[in-house]
Design a protein around this nucleic acid. Structure first.
Lengths: 338, 338
DNA sequence: CTTGGCACTCGAACGGACAGAGTGCCAACG
DNA sequence: CGTTGGCACTCTGTCCGTTCGAGTGCCAAG
């Protein structure tokens, strides 16, 4: 177990390094922080911290920089979450309040988050699997061609073309539309399948094929579209990453285009509360020199999706976590209102 | 007017510089191209080309690099559009054929284009203003709340919430739905306004307010959503830009996040045919060291949207133009089929 | 007009010297 | 035993001078 002062030294190192981006030495530390001890003592502490793996030297006889393990300790034990200032909160609310539809909410959120944290922001669209059905619409495009439109309570709309095995009358269509809606409206996606299973039987033999096709398309949409969409913003902030550019930035850009990777990343956010993945803690190799701060958001205690930021491991964790948490809260509120 | 050989020298310089990314000298030129003259002669030609502003030296006594004006001449007069190889064409077709809906088509297109050109690809969603209405659906969410869903012939769906001034019965709703559809289905967006203008009059006084609201929401959607959406991909290719990184790349990333800027950029594409904007020809300052190759696409001779790539001025113009043109053609085909 | 020759220029690469920051260790001190 | 000042040492980054080579412009000759 590290002594109180050694932890204090580690905290000081992290703070200074985050601020200056340069390895921090013992003398500078004592000057910038009131540790009450001499540089020599700090040196001894640093030696211990290094031995324990919390800090490292880029080269012999240079200052120290925190390791992933050091950041981890810092985040877990040494730093809280820095709440936003009142003007910042007000700005968030004002900015998000102007949104006109779901796309706009997500778009504004991602811009806001990128601006507040000065990092790359990622926002997941509200998940369908947790949503409920608000309405299912069936439209006849041609005698044997339908369009299925699914509207969710989060305001999302999905459409699918359905090719029917046989022509389908307008009357049957209205019938199916009415029955379908009476059964599934207000239900959660996961609850839908058993509720519609027996529907084909109540139609005439000629129409059963079509009804089955429509149903399977619907179920497919529910499952398949649970594969979520994302919006990304603030990539210009990547330029603030570090000095050794092309090498660091390239894999990050590649990761950002792989939605699957990002979804997994956000998915790792703990069900409740915020998740911080530091450097090598990220499963995806290209993000080994980045940290990901993510959190779920939603209305009324329910998590419908996640959002977060991707930045260099050398980031302002308290500030970033504060911004991410605040934005998540406000987005949740906005969703609840609409 | 420049002599034939001088043009040939310019072409050789562009080709070599694009290949090596290094200033090209007279000796290297004669070695790599069969110009049939000695380095000294080439030097004289280069002096003339420089005087005319087609090439420049980064430093005294270094090789030459093409200027924007040089690239312009190259593109206009010296190079054709390099057609893709048969395997490439086949790959495009296979890749695009797998698309399941409009989002998927655009997504695949942008990935394809980025991969083929190894640059940043931008694809605009098919424009609504040129589309026709396939169906308008009205759903009752609450007594005084409706959802308006607009489905276009390009497969795009837009939804809008409508708050009614007064409750609206299901019967009136069905009536409005039917009349609306009979008037606008199959019509172009721009033709819609006059066709629905007199609709409120045919309803009872109580409902007129709601009908008007619905109509104005519909018209708003038609206009407002003509403001197009974009998809971007291949940003990782930005790392291949040049040596002087942060400076070059930052404004480009910023531009890519400004959809308005990008739309304008694509918009500059000539109605028919391909547009190449080189360096300072781009109105947006941040893109002064990039070139934009864009072209319209659509089915049956009609341009419904545009796509293109953004890359360094030092790009393989014939190859890029070939890829852009080919992709645009195939996307047009795919859209026509669906 | 083309060509070979030649002097010149300039940037990139190499290497040594130097300064500065930072360390580790040690002996002294409370 | 923890803390402190002192000191020698080790790096790195930088500056400067040299060298090397690619490339040029010019000129005189073909």
């Amino acid at each position: 177990m590290l002594s109180e002062r050694r932890l204090e030294v580690l905290r000081a190192i992290v703070q200074d390094y985050v601020g200056t981006e340069e390895p921090v030495g013992s003398k500078a530390l004592t000057e910038r922080h009131r540790l009450g001890v001499s540089p020599a003592t700090v040196r001894n502490d640093m030696a211990v911290l290094e031995e324990e793996g919390y800090i490292a030297q880029p080269h012999t006889s240079a200052g120290r920089i925190p390791t992933d393990k050091g950041y981890r300790l810092f985040v877990d034990k040494l730093a809280g979450v820095k709440p936003l200032s009142t003007p910042e909160r007000r700005a968030i609310q004002n900015f998000l309040d102007g949104a006109v539809d779901l796309d706009d909410v997500v778009g504004r959120t991602v811009r806001l988050l990128a601006q507040l944290t000065r990092q790359v922001a990622v926002v997941q669209y509200p998940s369908l699997t947790r949503s409920t059905v608000r309405h299912v619409e069936l439209l006849s495009l041609a005698p044997a061609r339908l369009m299925l439109v699914l509207i969710t309570d989060t305001g999302r709309v999905e459409q699918r073309l359905v090719d029917c095995p046989s022509p389908f009358s307008e009357a049957s269509l209205a019938d199916l539309r009415a029955r379908l809606n009476s059964r599934v409206v207000g239900r959660r996606f996961t609850d839908v399948p058993p509720l519609v299973q027996d529907l084909p039987e109540s139609f005439e033999a000629d129409d059963r094929g079509t009804v089955s096709t429509v149903l399977s398309t619907l179920l497919e949409t529910l499952v398949e579209e649970a594969e979520e969409r994302l919006m990304i913003g603030g990539t210009a902030n990547l330029t603030r990453f570090g000095h050794d550019f092309p090498l660091t930035i390239r894999p990050v850009l590649e990761a950002l285009e792989e939605q699957v990777v990002l979804l997994k990343l956000l998915g790792e956010a703990n069900e409740s509360g915020m998740a911080v993945r530091i450097g090598h803690e990220n499963a995806y190799e290209g993000l080994n020199s980045t940290s990901v701060v993510s959190v779920g958001y939603g209305s009324g205690g329910e998590t419908v999706a996640k959002l977060g930021v991707v930045g260099p491991t050398r980031m302002d964790y308290p500030g970033t976590m504060g911004a991410v948490r605040a934005v998540a809260r406000y987005v949740g509120q906005i969703l609840a209102e609409s």
